[in-house]
Amino acid sequence: MQEINITVNSKEYTLTVPPYMSLLEMLREKLNLTGSKEGCGNGECGACTVLFDGEPVRSCLVLAVEADKSEVTTIEGLSNPDGTNPIQEAFIAEDAVQCGYCTPGFVMAVQALLNRTSEPTDEDIKEALGGHLCRCTGYEAIYRAIKKLVK
């Protein structure tokens, strides 16, 4: 067991974790932040995407101990105090959600994209979504939601 200090969604925590616990497991099992999902555990679906020191990563492929002294933002940390967030609103408006399991990962990827640039090109958008899988929507509505955000 190892002790780590970590800031999650602007809140500081001191946690004791086994070295083999993933950041995703830490978020879900230690902090009960279950918005980040495990779809593959292999870094290939994107459902577990969180911001790690501001950059999007696959939290299933980061160890909790590697996140010592880091800052993490999850889907739960995106909402404004009134519970809204422009990305979420765009996804809702364009019906870019079906089963919802991949959605937090997509939303985080878009947040990271908009953090990088407020005027992403089509290539930027494709790059941001490149490693995210959705089996329900066929992606059309997700693209629409993003275009709506950047227009």
Binding site: T34, G35, E76, L78, A93, V97, G100, Y101, P104
Partner: peptide
């Protein structure tokens, strides 16, 4: 104006079996 479950699902609040403990 929107899907019934969209708000919960886009905010990470929707619970799936794996989320239950």
């Amino acid at each position: 104006s929107e899907r019934l479950d969209a708000r919960k699902k886009t905010s990470g609040k929707a619970k799936f079996v794996a989320d239950l403990t």
